[in-house]
């Protein structure tokens, strides 16, 4: 019996560890796979931020997005952080960053080289400069093509759609 228990314990610890290891690896998507995240039609407000660990203004405003998760915990608001970190930097830079900063928002990596083909599909007002954020709920959409000056600015955008 104790051997079985030990085995089970070992089994759960191992799978638990494996699952944890996998969850730290953000999915790498091409644009076609990312696109559905930009057009969900339900009663949730989506906050989609394009960023990278090497982008200083992006990193500076990340705490604002994290704060959205807590402040709107009881409401239907979902934050998605779309990282533009280069493929060869994901394990070296992105994953350690997510762990160190304890990022709780969902992180995806967009790997889509020909940006000219998809930037307008995110928003025609976007020039391609990082950071950029869209806040949308069904057909209502706000585009913010620069760094947020403070948390309140982001908070107001979200509230204007809720």
């Amino acid at each position: 019996m104790s051997v079985v228990r030990l085995f089970l314990l070992g089994f759960f610890l191992t799978t638990g560890f494996l699952v944890k290891g996998q969850s730290n690896m953000p999915p790498i998507l091409d644009f076609a796979s990312l696109e559905p995240y930009l057009h969900k039609s339900n009663d949730t407000t989506y906050v989609v931020n394009f960023w990278a660990t090497w982008c200083k203004p992006c990193v500076e405003e990340l705490p604002y997005f994290e704060k959205v998760n807590t402040d709107f915990a009881s409401e239907k608001v979902k934050v998605l952080l779309v990282s533009m970190d280069f493929k060869n930097q994901i394990e070296k830079k992105l994953i350690p960053f997510i762990e160190e900063e304890k990022i709780s928002s969902e992180v995806l990596v967009l790997h889509a080289p020909n940006a000219n083909e998809w930037i307008d599909k995110v928003d025609e007002r976007w020039t391609g400069a990082l950071p950029a954020t869209i806040v949308y709920r069904n057909d209502q959409k706000i585009f913010h093509g620069e760094q947020f000056e403070n948390y309140q600015q982001l908070n107001n955008l979200i509230k204007s759609l809720n």
């Binding site: 982008c55 203004p57 533009m84 940006a115 000219n116 930037i119 307008d120 976007w126 020039t127 391609g128 400069a129 990082l130 950071p131 620069e146 760094q147």
Partner: peptide, 9 residues
Amino acid sequence: TKAIGCGIK
């Protein structure tokens, strides 16, 4: 054309 880049500081 458009491209991803760093916002001008």
